[in-house]
Design a binder for these strands. Structure first.
Lengths: 172, 172
DNA sequence: AAAGATTGAGACTTCAATCTTA
DNA sequence: TAAGATTGAAGTCTCAATCTTT
């Protein structure tokens, strides 16, 4: 049992947090706008293609693809629907598990990744790696690992995937 | 004129980048899910209320509110529509500029911030500040400032706000 | 012409419910 | 019962176009 955390952030923590929010939002917007212009798709969809392009046989089970893109099953299903419509991905059923589906990158899909990746990477370098010192890059990696780790542990603790609240009206 | 950047990221840069993507996505999802559950609104809408709550007279011009929340004008308009429907914000016209609109936090809006803020802050502390060393917190602040700075300079360079491309078919 | 703000359509995401198989 | 995947509805965001005022 740990101590109750102080209620508010200190001024400097507040500044840090605001800066982080600003940076991640601007980064997301910038990368999304570029990908939309160049490939007419959001970064999230590009990342799905990129993951497939690196996988064995350029294919992955929906389950694993969802995990590796930090995506919910539902979100991935919708995204793959779209990519399939555009002929960039195909769906096959899983040989060893009849519940499973496998997403396979098509040749057209591979071409999109090949065309988009260099431009995307250039931009990431430009606004991230080029503006950070080597030390800062190392720090960013470690910081990210810690935060991601905390969140993943947290999901497990809360049993997110098996939560079963009582039925209730949905209000937004 | 700077040198052309190397085409790909090094292995360690790649790892850093992936970790950053994972952390920021998980963080966004976690905070959004919590805010949705507790206040039935996305974090982006809560942040609008939070900004207003800190402003003089609990009000800001749409223009300034958009800038301070890293939001496009359009996005802010839609968000404030929603918040206004729920009675958390009111719109008034700007006394000195007839083009302007001012968003004002209502008493009900203030109550929402008062209720949501402590829970939100607790969670941020839990998954960010509690898992980082003081050095890392400092580093995160500096890194964020640099990235945000690079992106803001970039927007200016590209003249984002005044871009006027030739009319063309929209394709997504 | 540019700035401030809004509008409507289309695309994406989330949520809860459903269906099938393990 | 749980896991894998999908579905449909509702909410949010983006983009381009529009309207008003500077």
């Amino acid at each position: 049992m740990t101590e109750r955390s102080p209620r508010w952030l200190s001024d400097s923590e507040q500044e840090t947090w605001r800066a982080f929010l600003r940076a991640s939002r601007l980064l997301e917007v910038a990368l999304d706008a570029q990908m939309q212009q160049e490939q007419q798709m959001p970064t999230a969809h590009y990342l799905i293609l990129a993951m497939l392009s690196e996988a064995d046989g350029r294919q992955l089970r929906m389950r694993d693809l969802a995990a590796s893109t930090q995506s919910s099953r539902s979100r991935l299903t919708h995204a793959v629907d779209r990519l399939e419509q555009r002929g960039l991905v195909e769906r096959h059923s899983c040989p060893d598990d009849r519940r499973g589906q496998v997403a396979v990158l098509t040749v057209a899909g591979w071409r999109v990744v090949a065309k988009a990746a260099p431009l995307h990477v250039d931009r990431v370098r430009q606004v991230v790696f080029d503006v950070l010192s080597p030390d800062e890059v190392v720090a960013l990696g470690r910081i990210s690992e810690r935060i991601a780790g905390a969140l993943e542990r947290d999901f497990v603790d809360r049993g997110v995937s098996r939560a079963r609240p009582v039925p209730s009206d949905r209000q937004r």
